[in-house]
Amino acid sequence: MKFMDRYGALVCAVAVFAAAGALLPLHADAQQKKARLCPPGRVGVVIFKTQKTTGLRPAIEKPLSKKAGDAERGLEAIADTGRGGCLSCHQIAKILPKADESDPEQAKKYGQHGEIGSPLNSVGGRFTAGELRLIVADPQQAFPDADIAMPAYHRVADTVGVHPSCKGRPILSAQEVEDVIAFLKTLK
């Protein structure tokens, strides 16, 4: 399945359950372990530092990639359940018109918004690009007291039990993080 081959972030419930391989019988767990949840290519340790900021909140002021972020590509990464998957948890009112009911795939991609995080409708005005960069890259650093349920998109997970195909890989590439931030900055 194509989306399984994509590198990605929060795999939305529907997508994972529908995906072949998500519910392989248990005796096939060796197979399950081998199945690729994360495609090869995005290797390497991601190093970034939280920088001292001029503002009140912690941030990463310096862009992660050389090329400036592209808002349109950012929206694609946000809506793609195999990459950002942000809509699994957040609402973005602005993109609802894209959820054309006559096209079930479009309707599902842009029209189903979760309720775990708060709506992102005004985050572009409330946070600087640097603050958004840290929130997306490593929300636990951005909100240290919250035990936040949001994945860290650009910190190589040093956590327990990472799927073998995902070890050492960030969810979003540096460029994708910049693209996502470019889109978030349009939400005012």
């Binding site: 994972v16 998500a22 248990l26 767990d29 327990v160 039990g161 990472v162 799927h163 073998p164």
Partner: peptide, 16 residues
Amino acid sequence: INACLIRVRAAPLAAG
């Protein structure tokens, strides 16, 4: 449970 683990891209647990 394994479906949930795969969802967060964690290694599934061996049967039994």
